[in-house]
């Protein structure tokens, strides 16, 4: 930012394009940076000045448990998205442009339906009177398992919501793999499996890393889905923050947790940036 301003000072004309950014910068300051600062301030001032809230976070194992739970869930969701998304993205990359466009439409269709609608749809599907439970009971699973309000149900729903990000990350990388490389491998004696294992898989790895990082980070702060579908005993951080505020009006403690969550996300981003360069995250 500093270098940009310096350059602008040297050549006044060069500053103009940056003026276009001004509304966005103002908006972000007013509605993001300022509230974020307030949250940071609250975490060390509510109910009294000091690091008490943070000390409390480390002393009560409940919080640690929730953080671990959050990370494990996010990891699981990212992994499921990868395993389910890879074959789909592969199929899209191999298809004719028309079929690929159709598949892409189907994948992104879940983007166009409201988030809440999708979450409630899962409630209907997985509920005690839902078709899946009925099917399991019919198959002789007696009494049928509780699917709703478990880690399974929230993971399933989050995978559903986040899988388009994974598929798009994978697809954009796979589409750029030169088919001549696969032919070259084949002509050099590689059987189909070796072509995949030795050439396609390593060349699609950037898409796997991008997609998994994206899904993991979004998942860390997920609120609605885990709260509505997840197990109350296995809360995620965002849900716990909500509980702290709604039920205990403990803004200080909630703010401290929000700051730790923010810090975790920043750490993931930093590691990614060090290793791969942030500019690649969005394809």
């Amino acid at each position: 930012m500093l270098s940009v301003l310096n350059r602008g000072a040297a050549a006044p004309g060069a500053l103009k394009p940056w003026l276009l950014l001004l509304p966005l910068v103002l908006f972000l300051c007013a509605f993001f940076l300022v509230p974020l600062g307030q949250v940071a301030l609250m975490s060390v001032t509510e109910p009294e000045f000091g690091l008490g809230n943070y000390a409390h976070l480390t002393s009560d194992s409940l919080y640690l448990q929730v953080f671990i739970n959050t990370f494990l869930t996010a990891l699981g969701v990212a992994l499921c998205c990868l395993l389910l998304g890879y074959p789909l993205a592969y199929l899209m990359a191999q298809s004719s442009p028309r079929v690929a466009a159709l598949l892409m439409l189907l994948v992104t269709m879940s983007f166009w339906t409201s988030f809440l609608v999708r979450t409630y749809a899962w409630m209907v599907l997985l509920g005690n009177n839902g078709p899946i439970t009925a099917a399991l009971a019919f198959l002789g699973w007696n009494p049928p398992p509780h699917l709703l309000f478990t880690r399974l149900s929230s993971t399933l729903a989050m995978v559903h919501i986040l899988i388009p990000y994974m598929v798009m990350s994978l697809y954009s990388v796979m589409k750029r793999i030169d088919p001549a490389l696969l032919r070259a491998a084949e002509s050099l004696g590689a059987r189909p499996w070796s072509v995949f294992r030795q050439v396609y898989l390593p060349l699609s790895a950037p898409g796997m890393v991008n997609g998994a990082t994206l899904v993991f980070m979004i998942c860390l702060g997920f609120y609605v889905t885990p709260v509505l579908l997840g197990s109350p005993q296995e809360q995620m951080v965002a849900g716990l923050i909500g509980t702290q505020i709604e039920e205990f009006l403990d803004f200080g403690q909630a703010s401290a947790m929000a700051m730790v969550l923010l810090a975790s996300t920043m750490i993931v981003l930093t590691v990614y940036h060090r290793r791969f360069g942030l500019d690649r995250l969005w394809g």
């Binding site: 001549a180 032919r183 070259a184 084949e186 002509s187 050099l188 004696g189 590689a190 059987r191 189909p192």
Partner: peptide, 11 residues
């Protein structure tokens, strides 16, 4: 199949 033909190709 191509992988068994033992033909070298320069693309």
């Amino acid at each position: 199949p191509p992988h068994a033909r033992n033909i070298g190709i320069v693309f």
